[in-house]
Design a protein around this nucleic acid. Structure first.
Lengths: 167, 167
DNA sequence: CCCCTCTGCTTGAAAGTTAAACAACGTAGG
DNA sequence: CCTACGTTGTTTAACTTTCAAGCAGAGGGG
């Protein structure tokens, strides 16, 4: 049997600790801030807003469920519930996929596009004010590179990877 | 009456869009990843683990509820629920504050400390593997600076700020 | 064609979070 | 004192997310 190696783990250094805490604090606060802003101004959480945005940028304002889950980095289950709620609001409707009878499209309705148009300016302003306006161009660039690396690291190309939208 | 200015909002540039999407993707994936890791290895979500960590670093392994909420950047309501759950697990217990009869301390139990000890190595490893090991020292430094700025920007010192732990 | 497996998506229950209201205590001013 | 108001923490209900099945259609041998 495999005995656990029981080596002393590589704890975070003091500097790393500080970085990590700042990261947790910033993301928690930012998430909270944007969720609140959108709940107030658009009547939905940030994630749901993001789904509408993705749909709005798509050729016929529609996308297959799994693909939408992949873009949003969430599970299909979560997406199912979210779309159900957005459907109840009249902002999204479902359509069957002609080529695969199991498939569903989520389609952004006119009402959905309208809600987006209403909320977008306030939302961009909030994002700018909380993030971009506080950073130098170099920091913005650096942030982009870092986040790109982390995001890619967490969605490896290999088969069998534990990706939310495949759970 | 104030007429809305209705100026064209400053939309995100293409570069900013890319940065912002990467940020959302990375944080969403990382959150999911660590939540899963801790749910599997410690039987609790990341946030709850963080509460135990904070308590463990405190003089007598205890902290007032509001102060704990402030450190964790969450609402007192959320904390109340979280502590109730951790209490049910036997990892935290509540104690009355002698000097203020409204006050409560959350106290880390021995069992709580033990669960932390068990889970900590795996958790550090996960954080390293997903974040620190992928970044150069310069990037780590930059990330720290950026996150510090964002976090501070979202918790202004002025009275009347909408901070989660004061809601 | 049949069987088996895989894929796409949904469902219902449990767990976690939010928002609003509340009880109880502290505190400052009259 | 005593009143008014702020603070501390909890509670309820509504909402969101997760987890574990589950169902129906696609796909690939035999």
């Amino acid at each position: 049997m495999n005995r656990a190696p029981a080596e002393e783990p590589r704890w975070l250094t003091d500097e790393e600790q500080v970085v990590w805490r700042s990261f947790l604090d910033a993301t928690r606060l930012l998430d909270d801030h944007l969720d609140r802003q959108l709940q107030r101004d658009a009547g939905m959480p940030h994630l749901y807003y993001g789904l509408l945005v993705v749909l709005s940028e798509t050729p016929r304002r529609r996308m297959r469920m799994t693909e939408l889950a992949r873009q949003a980095k969430i599970t299909r289950s979560r997406l199912s519930h979210a779309i159900a709620r957005l459907e109840k609001n009249g902002w999204v409707r479902r359509e069957n996929c002609p080529s695969d009878k199991r498939g569903q499209f989520a389609v952004l309705t006119d009402a959905g596009l309208e809600v987006l148009r209403q909320a977008a300016p306030g939302h961009v302003a909030a994002v700018r004010q909380a993030l971009f306006d506080r950073l130098t161009p170099e920091q913005q660039k650096s942030l982009g590179e870092i986040m790109q690396i982390v995001a890619e690291g967490l969605q490896p190309k290999e088969a069998g990877a534990d990706l939310p939208w495949l759970r």
